[in-house]
Computed example of a mutant assay.
Amino acid sequence: MLLRRPQVAAAVIDRLRSLGIRMALDDFGTGFASIAYLQQLTIDRLKIDRSFLAPLESEPDMREVLVSIVGLAKAYHLEVCAEGIETPGQAQLARLAGCGRLQGWLFGRPQAASAFQAVALRA
């Protein structure tokens, strides 16, 4: 819908936000999740695609790219989530770049709903 009818999508997102639903732009930097959407849509959070996080420890230039993406998000007053964090080093570099939220296998692997419920009930 974003590609074919961006004005309609923006209206739907605004209506959902008026109901208290917060919106995130997922997989930023890949495919169709582009900078233009930051201008066109009222979103709350930018989720940086894992393809920018995976090479952080081995490619120092990617650290500058990550800092730039975080800076762009902050210019639009968005929270930033780094996806695909698999190592403590990636987590540290993402935090240093300004990512306020991290997600990935370092923090937990996918699991069946029943396993998640069992852990939640014990807490």
Rank of each mutant, 00 (worst) to 15 (best):
M1R: 00
L2W: 12
L3K: 14
R4P: 04
R4H: 15
R5A: 15
R5T: 15
P6Q: 11
Q7P: 05
Q7T: 14
V8M: 09
A9Y: 09
A10G: 05
D14A: 14
R15T: 15
L16Q: 11
L16R: 04
R17G: 12
S18T: 13
S18K: 10
S18Y: 08
L19V: 05
G20K: 03
G20M: 05
I21R: 04
R22K: 14
M23Y: 11
M23E: 08
L25T: 02
D26H: 11
D26R: 08
D27T: 00
D27W: 01
F28I: 08
G29S: 06
T30E: 06
G31S: 08
A33H: 04
A33V: 08
A33R: 10
A33Y: 06
S34C: 12
S34F: 07
S34G: 13
S34Q: 11
I35L: 15
A36T: 07
A36S: 09
Y37V: 08
L38S: 02
L38C: 02
Q40I: 06
Q40F: 05
Q40C: 07
L41V: 03
T42E: 12
I43L: 08
I43P: 01
D44K: 00
D44E: 02
D44H: 05
K47V: 01
I48T: 05
I48N: 07
D49R: 00
A54H: 08
A54P: 03
A54W: 15
P55I: 04
L56I: 07
S58C: 08
S58G: 06
P60G: 08
P60V: 10
D61I: 11
M62I: 07
M62Y: 14
R63Y: 05
V65Y: 11
V65I: 15
S68T: 15
V70M: 05
V70W: 05
L72I: 08
A73F: 08
A75Y: 04
H77R: 14
H77F: 08
L78H: 00
L78C: 00
C81P: 03
A82W: 02
I85L: 11
I85S: 09
I85E: 12
I85N: 13
E86A: 03
E86N: 02
T87L: 05
Q90R: 07
Q90M: 09
Q90T: 03
A91T: 01
L93S: 02
L93V: 03
L93I: 01
A94I: 00
A94E: 00
R95I: 06
L96Y: 03
L96K: 09
L96V: 12
A97D: 04
A97C: 01
G98K: 02
G100M: 03
R101E: 14
L102G: 13
L102Y: 09
Q103S: 00
W105Y: 15
W105S: 10
W105H: 09
L106P: 02
L106E: 01
L106A: 00
G108S: 02
G108E: 03
R109V: 09
R109M: 10
R109K: 15
Q111I: 06
A112K: 09
A113R: 07
A113N: 06
A113V: 13
S114V: 15
S114Y: 11
F116K: 10
F116P: 02
F116H: 12
F116I: 11
Q117A: 13
Q117G: 02
A118N: 04
A118R: 14
V119S: 13
V119H: 12
A120T: 13
L121T: 15
L121H: 11
L121S: 13
